[in-house]
Design a protein around this nucleic acid. Structure first.
Length: 600
DNA sequence: ACGCGGGGCACC
DNA sequence: AAACGGTGCCCCGCGT
Protein backbone atom coordinates (compact mmCIF):
# COMPACT_ATOMS: atom_id res chain seq x y z
CA UNK A 1 0.00 0.00 0.00
CA UNK A 2 1.24 3.42 -0.88
CA UNK A 3 -0.06 6.42 1.02
CA UNK A 4 -0.14 9.94 -0.31
CA UNK A 5 -1.25 12.94 1.65
CA UNK A 6 -2.69 15.96 -0.03
CA UNK A 7 -3.98 19.28 1.30
CA UNK A 8 -7.62 20.16 0.61
CA UNK A 9 -9.31 23.21 2.10
CA UNK A 10 -6.86 23.34 4.97
CA UNK A 11 -7.21 19.65 5.77
CA UNK A 12 -5.05 16.71 4.83
CA UNK A 13 -6.62 13.94 2.82
CA UNK A 14 -5.08 10.52 2.42
CA UNK A 15 -4.99 8.49 -0.75
CA UNK A 16 -4.31 4.78 -0.30
CA UNK A 17 -2.98 3.12 -3.41
CA UNK A 18 -3.58 -0.62 -3.25
CA UNK A 19 -0.67 -2.51 -4.79
CA UNK A 20 -0.92 -6.12 -3.70
CA UNK A 21 -3.52 -8.54 -2.39
CA UNK A 22 -2.15 -7.98 1.10
CA UNK A 23 -3.46 -4.41 0.92
CA UNK A 24 -7.05 -5.48 0.36
CA UNK A 25 -8.13 -6.17 3.97
CA UNK A 26 -7.49 -2.54 4.85
CA UNK A 27 -9.60 -1.50 1.88
CA UNK A 28 -12.37 -3.85 2.93
CA UNK A 29 -12.27 -2.46 6.44
CA UNK A 30 -12.63 1.05 4.97
CA UNK A 31 -15.67 -0.01 2.93
CA UNK A 32 -17.29 -1.60 5.99
CA UNK A 33 -16.80 1.63 7.91
CA UNK A 34 -18.04 3.93 5.18
CA UNK A 35 -20.61 1.79 3.38
CA UNK A 36 -23.44 4.19 4.25
CA UNK A 37 -22.17 6.76 1.78
CA UNK A 38 -19.26 6.25 -0.61
CA UNK A 39 -18.04 8.16 -3.61
CA UNK A 40 -16.49 6.24 -6.48
CA UNK A 41 -14.98 6.76 -9.90
CA UNK A 42 -13.09 4.71 -12.44
CA UNK A 43 -10.25 5.24 -14.88
CA UNK A 44 -10.43 3.36 -18.14
CA UNK A 45 -8.49 2.88 -21.37
CA UNK A 46 -10.78 5.19 -23.29
CA UNK A 47 -14.41 6.22 -23.38
CA UNK A 48 -15.98 3.52 -25.55
CA UNK A 49 -17.45 1.32 -22.84
CA UNK A 50 -19.35 -0.62 -25.51
CA UNK A 51 -16.04 -2.04 -26.77
CA UNK A 52 -15.37 -3.97 -23.55
CA UNK A 53 -16.64 -7.24 -24.99
CA UNK A 54 -14.40 -6.73 -28.04
CA UNK A 55 -11.41 -6.52 -25.71
CA UNK A 56 -10.42 -3.03 -26.81
CA UNK A 57 -11.70 -1.33 -23.68
CA UNK A 58 -11.20 -2.07 -20.01
CA UNK A 59 -11.19 -0.50 -16.58
CA UNK A 60 -7.77 0.24 -15.11
CA UNK A 61 -8.44 1.75 -11.69
CA UNK A 62 -11.49 1.94 -9.47
CA UNK A 63 -11.47 4.50 -6.71
CA UNK A 64 -13.59 4.78 -3.58
CA UNK A 65 -13.57 7.63 -1.16
CA UNK A 66 -15.06 9.92 1.44
CA UNK A 67 -14.34 13.55 2.30
CA UNK A 68 -10.80 12.88 3.47
CA UNK A 69 -9.76 9.41 2.43
CA UNK A 70 -9.72 7.31 -0.70
CA UNK A 71 -8.57 3.92 -1.94
CA UNK A 72 -7.35 3.28 -5.46
CA UNK A 73 -7.88 -0.30 -6.64
CA UNK A 74 -5.85 -1.53 -9.63
CA UNK A 75 -8.65 -3.54 -11.22
CA UNK A 76 -6.55 -4.01 -14.35
CA UNK A 77 -4.17 -6.20 -12.36
CA UNK A 78 -6.51 -9.13 -12.09
CA UNK A 79 -9.60 -10.83 -10.83
CA UNK A 80 -8.90 -10.45 -7.14
CA UNK A 81 -8.85 -6.68 -7.47
CA UNK A 82 -11.93 -6.68 -9.68
CA UNK A 83 -13.69 -8.81 -7.08
CA UNK A 84 -12.77 -6.28 -4.42
CA UNK A 85 -14.15 -3.36 -6.44
CA UNK A 86 -17.28 -5.31 -7.34
CA UNK A 87 -17.85 -6.20 -3.72
CA UNK A 88 -17.40 -2.61 -2.64
CA UNK A 89 -19.89 -1.31 -5.21
CA UNK A 90 -22.42 -3.91 -4.10
CA UNK A 91 -21.81 -3.37 -0.40
CA UNK A 92 -22.19 0.40 -0.41
CA UNK A 93 -25.69 1.46 0.55
CA UNK A 94 -25.40 4.81 -1.25
CA UNK A 95 -22.97 5.71 -4.00
CA UNK A 96 -21.89 9.10 -5.23
CA UNK A 97 -20.23 9.64 -8.61
CA UNK A 98 -19.71 12.56 -10.91
CA UNK A 99 -21.43 11.88 -14.22
CA UNK A 100 -22.17 8.47 -12.77
CA UNK A 101 -23.87 7.23 -15.91
CA UNK A 102 -20.45 6.52 -17.35
CA UNK A 103 -19.30 4.58 -14.30
CA UNK A 104 -22.54 2.58 -14.39
CA UNK A 105 -21.80 1.50 -17.96
CA UNK A 106 -18.25 0.52 -17.05
CA UNK A 107 -19.35 -1.34 -13.91
CA UNK A 108 -21.78 -3.30 -16.04
CA UNK A 109 -19.45 -4.02 -18.94
CA UNK A 110 -16.24 -4.61 -17.01
CA UNK A 111 -17.38 -5.86 -13.59
CA UNK A 112 -20.61 -7.51 -14.61
CA UNK A 113 -22.85 -5.53 -12.27
CA UNK A 114 -26.15 -4.71 -14.00
CA UNK A 115 -26.74 -1.00 -13.92
CA UNK A 116 -30.23 -1.71 -12.65
CA UNK A 117 -28.56 -2.85 -9.44
CA UNK A 118 -26.42 0.24 -8.83
CA UNK A 119 -28.62 2.98 -10.30
CA UNK A 120 -31.26 3.03 -7.53
CA UNK A 121 -28.64 3.76 -4.87
CA UNK A 122 -26.57 6.17 -6.95
CA UNK A 123 -26.33 9.94 -6.63
CA UNK A 124 -24.79 12.03 -9.32
CA UNK A 125 -23.06 15.30 -8.44
CA UNK A 126 -23.49 16.51 -12.01
CA UNK A 127 -27.28 16.33 -11.69
CA UNK A 128 -27.22 17.90 -8.24
CA UNK A 129 -24.94 20.69 -9.45
CA UNK A 130 -27.36 21.38 -12.29
CA UNK A 131 -30.26 21.81 -9.90
CA UNK A 132 -28.17 24.26 -7.87
CA UNK A 133 -26.86 26.30 -10.80
CA UNK A 134 -27.08 25.13 -14.42
CA UNK A 135 -24.88 27.81 -15.93
CA UNK A 136 -21.77 26.99 -17.92
CA UNK A 137 -18.43 28.57 -17.08
CA UNK A 138 -18.58 30.77 -20.17
CA UNK A 139 -21.66 32.50 -18.82
CA UNK A 140 -20.05 33.11 -15.44
CA UNK A 141 -21.55 29.97 -13.94
CA UNK A 142 -19.87 27.14 -12.03
CA UNK A 143 -19.97 24.72 -14.98
CA UNK A 144 -20.90 21.05 -14.68
CA UNK A 145 -17.58 19.19 -15.02
CA UNK A 146 -15.88 17.85 -11.88
CA UNK A 147 -12.89 20.08 -12.45
CA UNK A 148 -15.06 23.16 -12.98
CA UNK A 149 -17.17 22.45 -9.90
CA UNK A 150 -14.05 21.86 -7.87
CA UNK A 151 -12.75 25.25 -8.97
CA UNK A 152 -16.00 26.97 -8.09
CA UNK A 153 -17.04 25.24 -4.87
CA UNK A 154 -13.81 23.84 -3.40
CA UNK A 155 -10.60 25.51 -4.48
CA UNK A 156 -8.85 26.78 -7.55
CA UNK A 157 -5.45 25.22 -6.86
CA UNK A 158 -6.75 21.66 -6.71
CA UNK A 159 -8.83 22.18 -9.84
CA UNK A 160 -5.79 23.47 -11.70
CA UNK A 161 -3.63 20.63 -10.40
CA UNK A 162 -6.18 17.99 -11.39
CA UNK A 163 -6.69 19.55 -14.81
CA UNK A 164 -2.98 19.92 -15.41
CA UNK A 165 -1.86 16.56 -14.06
CA UNK A 166 -2.77 14.46 -17.08
CA UNK A 167 -1.18 17.02 -19.42
CA UNK A 168 2.04 16.76 -17.43
CA UNK A 169 1.94 12.97 -17.49
CA UNK A 170 1.31 12.92 -21.25
CA UNK A 171 4.29 15.19 -21.83
CA UNK A 172 6.43 13.03 -19.56
CA UNK A 173 5.45 9.87 -21.45
CA UNK A 174 5.84 11.57 -24.82
CA UNK A 175 2.30 10.86 -25.99
CA UNK A 176 -0.64 13.02 -26.89
CA UNK A 177 -3.01 13.79 -24.04
CA UNK A 178 -5.83 11.91 -25.73
CA UNK A 179 -3.68 8.78 -25.97
CA UNK A 180 -2.41 8.73 -22.41
CA UNK A 181 -5.16 6.69 -20.75
CA UNK A 182 -4.31 3.21 -22.03
CA UNK A 183 -0.51 3.56 -21.86
CA UNK A 184 0.18 5.22 -18.55
CA UNK A 185 1.81 2.71 -16.14
CA UNK A 186 -0.73 1.49 -13.63
CA UNK A 187 1.48 2.34 -10.66
CA UNK A 188 2.33 5.83 -11.93
CA UNK A 189 2.37 8.15 -8.94
CA UNK A 190 0.68 11.15 -10.55
CA UNK A 191 -1.96 8.96 -12.16
CA UNK A 192 -2.92 7.39 -8.84
CA UNK A 193 -2.94 10.75 -7.15
CA UNK A 194 -5.21 12.17 -9.84
CA UNK A 195 -7.44 9.11 -9.68
CA UNK A 196 -7.55 9.05 -5.90
CA UNK A 197 -8.57 12.69 -5.65
CA UNK A 198 -11.68 12.29 -7.80
CA UNK A 199 -13.91 10.41 -5.33
CA UNK A 200 -12.78 12.74 -2.54
CA UNK A 201 -13.82 15.74 -4.61
CA UNK A 202 -17.11 14.13 -5.64
CA UNK A 203 -17.90 13.32 -2.01
CA UNK A 204 -17.13 16.86 -0.91
CA UNK A 205 -19.18 18.33 -3.74
CA UNK A 206 -22.10 16.15 -2.74
CA UNK A 207 -21.96 17.52 0.81
CA UNK A 208 -21.55 21.09 -0.42
CA UNK A 209 -24.24 20.97 -3.09
CA UNK A 210 -27.07 19.06 -1.43
CA UNK A 211 -27.97 21.88 0.99
CA UNK A 212 -27.83 24.37 -1.88
CA UNK A 213 -30.61 22.68 -3.86
CA UNK A 214 -33.49 25.16 -4.01
CA UNK A 215 -36.21 24.22 -1.55
CA UNK A 216 -38.86 24.31 -4.24
CA UNK A 217 -36.90 21.95 -6.48
CA UNK A 218 -36.46 19.54 -3.61
CA UNK A 219 -40.10 19.72 -2.57
CA UNK A 220 -41.23 19.02 -6.11
CA UNK A 221 -39.10 15.88 -6.07
CA UNK A 222 -36.65 16.89 -8.76
CA UNK A 223 -33.67 15.17 -7.14
CA UNK A 224 -34.87 11.55 -7.44
CA UNK A 225 -36.70 12.45 -10.63
CA UNK A 226 -33.51 13.55 -12.43
CA UNK A 227 -31.68 10.48 -11.20
CA UNK A 228 -34.38 8.22 -12.46
CA UNK A 229 -34.32 9.97 -15.82
CA UNK A 230 -30.54 9.67 -16.06
CA UNK A 231 -30.81 5.95 -15.47
CA UNK A 232 -33.41 5.58 -18.21
CA UNK A 233 -31.16 7.50 -20.58
CA UNK A 234 -28.32 5.17 -19.65
CA UNK A 235 -30.46 2.20 -20.63
CA UNK A 236 -31.23 3.85 -23.97
CA UNK A 237 -27.51 4.45 -24.49
CA UNK A 238 -26.80 0.82 -23.69
CA UNK A 239 -29.33 -0.41 -26.24
CA UNK A 240 -27.84 1.81 -28.91
CA UNK A 241 -29.05 2.16 -32.45
CA UNK A 242 -28.55 -0.31 -35.29
CA UNK A 243 -26.41 1.28 -38.02
CA UNK A 244 -26.81 0.57 -41.72
CA UNK A 245 -23.07 0.55 -42.16
CA UNK A 246 -23.18 -0.42 -45.83
CA UNK A 247 -25.30 2.61 -46.59
CA UNK A 248 -23.17 4.85 -44.36
CA UNK A 249 -19.98 3.72 -46.10
CA UNK A 250 -21.45 4.27 -49.55
CA UNK A 251 -22.60 7.76 -48.67
CA UNK A 252 -19.31 8.64 -47.01
CA UNK A 253 -17.39 7.57 -50.10
CA UNK A 254 -19.74 9.37 -52.46
CA UNK A 255 -19.41 12.56 -50.42
CA UNK A 256 -15.63 12.16 -50.40
CA UNK A 257 -15.58 11.99 -54.21
CA UNK A 258 -17.91 14.97 -54.44
CA UNK A 259 -15.69 16.93 -52.10
CA UNK A 260 -12.61 16.20 -54.22
CA UNK A 261 -14.35 17.30 -57.40
CA UNK A 262 -15.41 20.61 -55.88
CA UNK A 263 -12.02 21.21 -54.31
CA UNK A 264 -10.36 20.78 -57.71
CA UNK A 265 -12.64 23.45 -59.14
CA UNK A 266 -11.91 25.78 -56.21
CA UNK A 267 -8.16 25.32 -56.75
CA UNK A 268 -8.52 26.38 -60.39
CA UNK A 269 -9.94 29.62 -59.07
CA UNK A 270 -7.15 30.15 -56.58
CA UNK A 271 -8.63 28.72 -53.37
CA UNK A 272 -6.40 25.97 -51.95
CA UNK A 273 -8.45 25.44 -48.82
CA UNK A 274 -12.17 26.04 -49.03
CA UNK A 275 -12.47 25.99 -45.24
CA UNK A 276 -10.19 28.97 -44.88
CA UNK A 277 -12.36 32.05 -44.78
CA UNK A 278 -9.25 34.20 -45.23
CA UNK A 279 -8.53 32.50 -48.57
CA UNK A 280 -12.16 32.70 -49.65
CA UNK A 281 -12.35 36.44 -48.85
CA UNK A 282 -9.10 37.09 -50.74
CA UNK A 283 -10.16 35.17 -53.86
CA UNK A 284 -13.63 36.70 -54.02
CA UNK A 285 -12.29 40.21 -53.51
CA UNK A 286 -9.79 39.65 -56.34
CA UNK A 287 -12.70 38.57 -58.52
CA UNK A 288 -14.27 41.95 -57.86
CA UNK A 289 -16.88 40.94 -55.32
CA UNK A 290 -17.67 43.55 -52.68
CA UNK A 291 -18.12 42.04 -49.24
CA UNK A 292 -20.05 44.10 -46.74
CA UNK A 293 -21.76 41.76 -44.25
CA UNK A 294 -19.91 41.53 -40.95
CA UNK A 295 -19.67 38.75 -38.40
CA UNK A 296 -20.51 39.25 -34.73
CA UNK A 297 -16.91 40.26 -34.07
CA UNK A 298 -16.82 42.69 -36.97
CA UNK A 299 -14.91 40.59 -39.51
CA UNK A 300 -16.04 40.12 -43.09
CA UNK A 301 -18.61 37.38 -43.32
CA UNK A 302 -18.61 34.72 -46.03
CA UNK A 303 -21.51 32.61 -44.89
CA UNK A 304 -23.96 30.81 -47.13
CA UNK A 305 -26.18 33.87 -47.66
CA UNK A 306 -23.22 36.05 -48.71
CA UNK A 307 -21.77 33.41 -51.01
CA UNK A 308 -25.10 32.62 -52.65
CA UNK A 309 -25.72 36.29 -53.36
CA UNK A 310 -22.37 36.50 -55.20
CA UNK A 311 -22.80 33.32 -57.22
CA UNK A 312 -20.50 31.94 -59.93
CA UNK A 313 -18.41 28.78 -60.34
CA UNK A 314 -16.00 29.45 -57.46
CA UNK A 315 -18.79 30.08 -55.00
CA UNK A 316 -20.56 26.95 -56.18
CA UNK A 317 -17.37 24.94 -55.63
CA UNK A 318 -16.76 26.38 -52.15
CA UNK A 319 -20.28 25.68 -50.97
CA UNK A 320 -20.26 22.21 -52.52
CA UNK A 321 -16.90 21.20 -51.08
CA UNK A 322 -17.62 22.51 -47.59
CA UNK A 323 -20.98 20.86 -47.46
CA UNK A 324 -19.70 17.49 -48.70
CA UNK A 325 -16.87 17.51 -46.18
CA UNK A 326 -18.98 18.55 -43.23
CA UNK A 327 -21.73 16.06 -43.96
CA UNK A 328 -19.32 13.20 -44.52
CA UNK A 329 -17.30 13.88 -41.39
CA UNK A 330 -20.13 14.88 -39.07
CA UNK A 331 -22.76 12.33 -39.93
CA UNK A 332 -21.49 9.28 -41.76
CA UNK A 333 -17.87 8.97 -40.59
CA UNK A 334 -18.82 9.73 -37.00
CA UNK A 335 -21.47 7.01 -37.03
CA UNK A 336 -19.12 4.50 -38.68
CA UNK A 337 -16.37 5.25 -36.16
CA UNK A 338 -18.70 4.56 -33.25
CA UNK A 339 -19.86 1.10 -34.28
CA UNK A 340 -19.59 -1.73 -31.78
CA UNK A 341 -19.08 -5.42 -32.55
CA UNK A 342 -22.77 -5.87 -33.29
CA UNK A 343 -22.96 -2.97 -35.70
CA UNK A 344 -24.71 -0.72 -33.23
CA UNK A 345 -23.83 2.83 -32.29
CA UNK A 346 -24.24 4.37 -28.85
CA UNK A 347 -25.03 8.03 -28.33
CA UNK A 348 -24.06 9.83 -25.18
CA UNK A 349 -27.35 11.12 -23.81
CA UNK A 350 -26.53 13.93 -21.41
CA UNK A 351 -29.85 13.82 -19.67
CA UNK A 352 -29.64 17.22 -17.95
CA UNK A 353 -27.16 19.45 -19.68
CA UNK A 354 -28.31 22.77 -21.12
CA UNK A 355 -29.16 25.76 -18.97
CA UNK A 356 -32.81 24.85 -19.48
CA UNK A 357 -31.99 21.23 -18.49
CA UNK A 358 -32.54 20.19 -22.08
CA UNK A 359 -30.68 17.03 -22.96
CA UNK A 360 -27.82 17.04 -25.38
CA UNK A 361 -27.14 13.97 -27.47
CA UNK A 362 -23.60 13.64 -28.65
CA UNK A 363 -21.28 11.06 -30.12
CA UNK A 364 -22.13 8.61 -32.87
CA UNK A 365 -25.83 9.51 -33.02
CA UNK A 366 -26.05 13.30 -32.80
CA UNK A 367 -29.80 12.89 -32.87
CA UNK A 368 -30.65 16.53 -32.27
CA UNK A 369 -28.68 17.91 -35.18
CA UNK A 370 -29.31 15.36 -37.92
CA UNK A 371 -30.63 17.13 -41.03
CA UNK A 372 -34.39 17.15 -40.66
CA UNK A 373 -35.38 18.32 -44.11
CA UNK A 374 -34.47 15.17 -45.99
CA UNK A 375 -34.07 11.57 -45.04
CA UNK A 376 -30.56 11.18 -46.48
CA UNK A 377 -28.67 10.92 -43.19
CA UNK A 378 -31.42 9.34 -41.09
CA UNK A 379 -31.51 6.34 -43.41
CA UNK A 380 -28.35 5.27 -41.53
CA UNK A 381 -30.31 4.35 -38.44
CA UNK A 382 -32.37 1.19 -38.46
CA UNK A 383 -35.06 -0.37 -36.34
CA UNK A 384 -34.28 -3.96 -35.37
CA UNK A 385 -34.82 -6.65 -38.03
CA UNK A 386 -38.57 -7.24 -38.14
CA UNK A 387 -39.19 -3.88 -36.49
CA UNK A 388 -40.26 -0.52 -37.86
CA UNK A 389 -39.32 3.00 -36.85
CA UNK A 390 -42.01 5.02 -35.13
CA UNK A 391 -41.58 8.72 -34.50
CA UNK A 392 -43.91 10.33 -31.96
CA UNK A 393 -43.78 14.05 -31.50
CA UNK A 394 -45.63 16.61 -29.46
CA UNK A 395 -47.64 19.13 -31.47
CA UNK A 396 -46.80 22.79 -30.83
CA UNK A 397 -45.35 21.85 -27.48
CA UNK A 398 -43.68 25.14 -26.60
CA UNK A 399 -46.60 27.34 -27.65
CA UNK A 400 -49.04 25.11 -25.77
CA UNK A 401 -46.86 25.31 -22.67
CA UNK A 402 -46.91 29.07 -23.06
CA UNK A 403 -50.68 29.09 -23.45
CA UNK A 404 -51.26 26.81 -20.46
CA UNK A 405 -48.96 28.56 -18.00
CA UNK A 406 -49.76 32.12 -19.09
CA UNK A 407 -53.46 31.36 -18.90
CA UNK A 408 -54.05 33.53 -21.97
CA UNK A 409 -57.69 32.86 -22.85
CA UNK A 410 -57.35 33.54 -26.54
CA UNK A 411 -54.31 31.33 -27.03
CA UNK A 412 -55.81 28.51 -24.96
CA UNK A 413 -59.11 28.84 -26.77
CA UNK A 414 -57.40 28.67 -30.16
CA UNK A 415 -55.66 25.43 -29.26
CA UNK A 416 -58.75 23.93 -27.65
CA UNK A 417 -60.87 24.63 -30.71
CA UNK A 418 -58.16 23.32 -33.02
CA UNK A 419 -57.72 26.69 -34.69
CA UNK A 420 -54.62 27.79 -36.54
CA UNK A 421 -52.70 29.95 -34.07
CA UNK A 422 -50.29 31.20 -36.71
CA UNK A 423 -53.23 32.45 -38.80
CA UNK A 424 -54.82 34.11 -35.77
CA UNK A 425 -51.65 36.08 -35.11
CA UNK A 426 -51.37 36.89 -38.81
CA UNK A 427 -55.00 38.06 -39.03
CA UNK A 428 -54.64 40.22 -35.94
CA UNK A 429 -51.81 42.08 -37.65
CA UNK A 430 -53.22 41.92 -41.16
CA UNK A 431 -50.14 40.13 -42.49
CA UNK A 432 -49.59 36.79 -44.28
CA UNK A 433 -49.58 33.56 -42.26
CA UNK A 434 -45.82 33.22 -42.66
CA UNK A 435 -45.30 36.45 -40.71
CA UNK A 436 -47.74 35.29 -38.05
CA UNK A 437 -45.97 31.97 -37.65
CA UNK A 438 -42.58 33.62 -37.44
CA UNK A 439 -43.89 36.00 -34.83
CA UNK A 440 -45.32 33.25 -32.66
CA UNK A 441 -41.97 31.49 -32.53
CA UNK A 442 -39.71 34.50 -32.28
CA UNK A 443 -41.81 36.00 -29.50
CA UNK A 444 -41.16 32.92 -27.38
CA UNK A 445 -37.43 33.48 -27.89
CA UNK A 446 -37.74 37.07 -26.72
CA UNK A 447 -36.97 38.26 -30.22
CA UNK A 448 -38.22 41.31 -32.03
CA UNK A 449 -39.17 42.31 -35.57
CA UNK A 450 -35.57 42.13 -36.79
CA UNK A 451 -35.39 38.47 -35.93
CA UNK A 452 -38.58 37.81 -37.88
CA UNK A 453 -37.17 39.61 -40.90
CA UNK A 454 -33.90 37.70 -40.76
CA UNK A 455 -35.23 34.29 -39.86
CA UNK A 456 -38.39 34.17 -41.88
CA UNK A 457 -37.68 36.59 -44.70
CA UNK A 458 -40.72 38.66 -43.78
CA UNK A 459 -40.76 42.33 -44.91
CA UNK A 460 -39.90 44.82 -42.18
CA UNK A 461 -43.32 46.51 -42.25
CA UNK A 462 -45.15 43.23 -41.76
CA UNK A 463 -42.78 42.06 -39.04
CA UNK A 464 -43.24 45.25 -37.05
CA UNK A 465 -47.01 45.05 -37.33
CA UNK A 466 -47.00 41.39 -36.35
CA UNK A 467 -44.92 41.85 -33.21
CA UNK A 468 -47.17 44.66 -32.03
CA UNK A 469 -50.23 42.59 -32.75
CA UNK A 470 -48.83 39.55 -30.93
CA UNK A 471 -48.57 41.29 -27.57
CA UNK A 472 -51.96 42.95 -28.00
CA UNK A 473 -53.68 39.77 -29.10
CA UNK A 474 -52.37 37.67 -26.23
CA UNK A 475 -52.44 39.96 -23.19
CA UNK A 476 -52.14 36.98 -20.85
CA UNK A 477 -48.81 36.14 -22.43
CA UNK A 478 -47.67 39.72 -21.91
CA UNK A 479 -48.65 39.60 -18.24
CA UNK A 480 -46.91 36.24 -17.82
CA UNK A 481 -43.70 37.46 -19.46
CA UNK A 482 -43.77 40.63 -17.34
CA UNK A 483 -44.27 38.60 -14.18
CA UNK A 484 -41.28 36.36 -14.99
CA UNK A 485 -39.13 39.38 -15.77
CA UNK A 486 -40.09 41.02 -12.48
CA UNK A 487 -39.23 37.83 -10.61
CA UNK A 488 -35.91 37.60 -12.46
CA UNK A 489 -35.05 41.23 -11.74
CA UNK A 490 -35.92 40.92 -8.08
CA UNK A 491 -34.31 37.55 -7.31
CA UNK A 492 -32.01 36.78 -10.23
CA UNK A 493 -33.99 33.61 -10.97
CA UNK A 494 -37.16 32.23 -12.42
CA UNK A 495 -38.82 28.99 -11.37
CA UNK A 496 -40.22 26.75 -14.10
CA UNK A 497 -43.47 24.84 -14.12
CA UNK A 498 -41.75 21.88 -12.48
CA UNK A 499 -40.01 23.90 -9.75
CA UNK A 500 -36.62 24.15 -11.42
CA UNK A 501 -34.65 27.30 -10.72
CA UNK A 502 -32.94 29.03 -13.63
CA UNK A 503 -30.71 32.10 -13.29
CA UNK A 504 -31.47 35.00 -15.61
CA UNK A 505 -28.78 37.46 -16.67
CA UNK A 506 -30.14 40.94 -15.83
CA UNK A 507 -28.62 42.23 -19.06
CA UNK A 508 -30.81 39.78 -21.02
CA UNK A 509 -33.91 39.85 -18.93
CA UNK A 510 -36.19 39.15 -21.89
CA UNK A 511 -34.83 35.60 -21.95
CA UNK A 512 -36.84 34.74 -18.82
CA UNK A 513 -39.92 33.74 -20.80
CA UNK A 514 -37.96 31.43 -23.07
CA UNK A 515 -36.19 29.75 -20.17
CA UNK A 516 -39.57 28.97 -18.65
CA UNK A 517 -41.02 27.61 -21.87
CA UNK A 518 -37.98 25.65 -22.98
CA UNK A 519 -37.29 24.11 -19.61
CA UNK A 520 -40.90 23.22 -18.83
CA UNK A 521 -41.16 21.62 -22.27
CA UNK A 522 -38.03 19.59 -21.64
CA UNK A 523 -39.56 18.31 -18.44
CA UNK A 524 -42.66 17.17 -20.30
CA UNK A 525 -40.52 14.97 -22.56
CA UNK A 526 -38.55 13.81 -19.52
CA UNK A 527 -41.78 12.89 -17.77
CA UNK A 528 -42.79 10.89 -20.84
CA UNK A 529 -39.56 8.88 -20.68
CA UNK A 530 -40.15 8.16 -17.00
CA UNK A 531 -43.77 7.11 -17.51
CA UNK A 532 -42.83 4.98 -20.52
CA UNK A 533 -40.15 3.33 -18.41
CA UNK A 534 -42.65 2.53 -15.65
CA UNK A 535 -44.83 0.88 -18.29
CA UNK A 536 -41.91 -1.16 -19.62
CA UNK A 537 -41.33 0.58 -22.95
CA UNK A 538 -37.74 1.80 -22.57
CA UNK A 539 -36.42 -1.15 -24.56
CA UNK A 540 -38.13 0.29 -27.66
CA UNK A 541 -36.86 3.86 -27.29
CA UNK A 542 -33.94 4.75 -29.55
CA UNK A 543 -33.48 8.49 -29.05
CA UNK A 544 -35.25 11.49 -27.54
CA UNK A 545 -35.13 14.64 -29.71
CA UNK A 546 -36.51 17.52 -27.61
CA UNK A 547 -40.21 17.16 -28.45
CA UNK A 548 -40.00 13.79 -30.17
CA UNK A 549 -39.24 10.19 -29.26
CA UNK A 550 -38.02 7.69 -31.83
CA UNK A 551 -38.97 4.05 -31.27
CA UNK A 552 -38.19 0.67 -32.80
CA UNK A 553 -41.34 -1.47 -32.53
CA UNK A 554 -42.03 -5.01 -33.76
CA UNK A 555 -43.73 -4.48 -37.12
CA UNK A 556 -46.87 -6.49 -36.38
CA UNK A 557 -47.56 -4.60 -33.14
CA UNK A 558 -46.34 -1.20 -34.29
CA UNK A 559 -49.75 0.38 -34.58
CA UNK A 560 -50.88 -0.78 -31.17
CA UNK A 561 -47.61 0.15 -29.44
CA UNK A 562 -47.49 3.53 -31.16
CA UNK A 563 -50.98 4.31 -29.92
CA UNK A 564 -50.32 3.10 -26.38
CA UNK A 565 -47.06 4.98 -26.01
CA UNK A 566 -48.55 8.15 -27.51
CA UNK A 567 -51.29 8.08 -24.86
CA UNK A 568 -48.63 7.77 -22.16
CA UNK A 569 -46.64 10.66 -23.61
CA UNK A 570 -49.63 12.97 -23.80
CA UNK A 571 -50.29 15.26 -20.88
CA UNK A 572 -52.93 17.82 -19.99
CA UNK A 573 -51.54 20.99 -18.41
CA UNK A 574 -54.00 23.25 -16.66
CA UNK A 575 -56.75 21.88 -18.85
CA UNK A 576 -54.84 22.12 -22.12
CA UNK A 577 -53.77 18.93 -23.89
CA UNK A 578 -50.25 18.65 -25.30
CA UNK A 579 -51.07 16.16 -28.06
CA UNK A 580 -48.79 13.53 -29.55
CA UNK A 581 -48.75 12.46 -33.17
CA UNK A 582 -47.14 9.14 -34.16
CA UNK A 583 -45.76 8.32 -37.59
CA UNK A 584 -45.12 4.68 -38.41
CA UNK A 585 -42.36 4.22 -40.98
CA UNK A 586 -40.33 1.37 -42.41
CA UNK A 587 -37.11 -0.03 -41.01
CA UNK A 588 -34.99 3.12 -41.22
CA UNK A 589 -35.51 6.37 -39.37
CA UNK A 590 -35.27 8.09 -42.72
CA UNK A 591 -38.26 6.17 -44.03
CA UNK A 592 -40.50 8.09 -41.63
CA UNK A 593 -39.48 11.34 -43.28
CA UNK A 594 -40.03 9.90 -46.75
CA UNK A 595 -43.51 8.86 -45.71
CA UNK A 596 -44.32 12.33 -44.42
CA UNK A 597 -42.94 13.91 -47.60
CA UNK A 598 -45.06 11.67 -49.82
CA UNK A 599 -48.21 12.74 -47.96
CA UNK A 600 -47.75 16.33 -49.02
C1' DA B 1 1.14 19.52 -29.53
C1' DC B 2 -2.71 21.42 -27.52
C1' DG B 3 -6.36 24.61 -26.12
C1' DC B 4 -9.43 27.93 -27.38
C1' DG B 5 -12.07 31.49 -29.72
C1' DG B 6 -14.32 32.52 -33.93
C1' DG B 7 -17.02 31.37 -38.01
C1' DG B 8 -20.20 28.60 -39.97
C1' DC B 9 -23.94 25.34 -39.90
C1' DA B 10 -26.79 21.22 -38.32
C1' DC B 11 -31.08 21.08 -35.07
C1' DC B 12 -35.54 22.21 -31.67
C1' DA C 1 -40.05 50.19 -26.54
C1' DA C 2 -37.40 46.50 -27.79
C1' DA C 3 -34.68 42.82 -26.89
C1' DC C 4 -32.89 35.85 -30.98
C1' DG C 5 -33.72 31.20 -26.51
C1' DG C 6 -31.03 26.61 -26.13
C1' DT C 7 -27.31 23.32 -28.11
C1' DG C 8 -22.74 20.34 -30.66
C1' DC C 9 -19.25 19.77 -34.08
C1' DC C 10 -16.00 20.78 -37.98
C1' DC C 11 -12.58 23.72 -39.36
C1' DC C 12 -9.05 27.54 -39.18
C1' DG C 13 -5.77 30.39 -37.01
C1' DC C 14 -3.34 31.84 -33.21
C1' DG C 15 -1.19 31.80 -28.71
C1' DT C 16 1.22 29.04 -25.36
Amino acid sequence: MRLTEYPVQGQTVTIHVVETEEDLPAFQEFIYQEQGLLAHDCETTGLNWWDASAGTFHARLWQFGTADESYVIPVEKGLVFQDAARWALRTARRLIAHNGTYDLHVAEECLGIPMEELAPKSWDTKLIAHLVDPRAVKEQGPGLKLEELTRHYICKEIADAVKGSMTVIAAELGVKKADVWPVIPLQHYGFNLYAGMDPILAYRLFKILMPKIPARSRQRGLVPWEHRLAHICAKIERTGYLLDSKYAKEQSEALGREQERWEAVARLHGVENVNSNAQVIKALTEQGAVLTKKTKKGNLSVDDAVLTSIGGPLVEAIIGAKRANKWRATWFDRALAGQDQDGRVHAAINSCQAKSARMTITGAVPAQTLPAGDSYVRHCFLAEPGHVTVSSDYGNMELRVLAAFSGDRRMIGAFQRGLDLHQITADAAGVPRKAGKGTNFVATFGGGWKAIVEQYGVPEVEAKKAVKAFWQTYPGVKRFSDRLQREARRTGYIYTGTGRRIPVDPKRIWAALNYFIQSTSRDITARALIELDRAGYTQYVRVPVHDELVFSFPAEQAEELAAKTARIMEITLKGLLIPVDSEIGGQSWGSVLDLEASKH
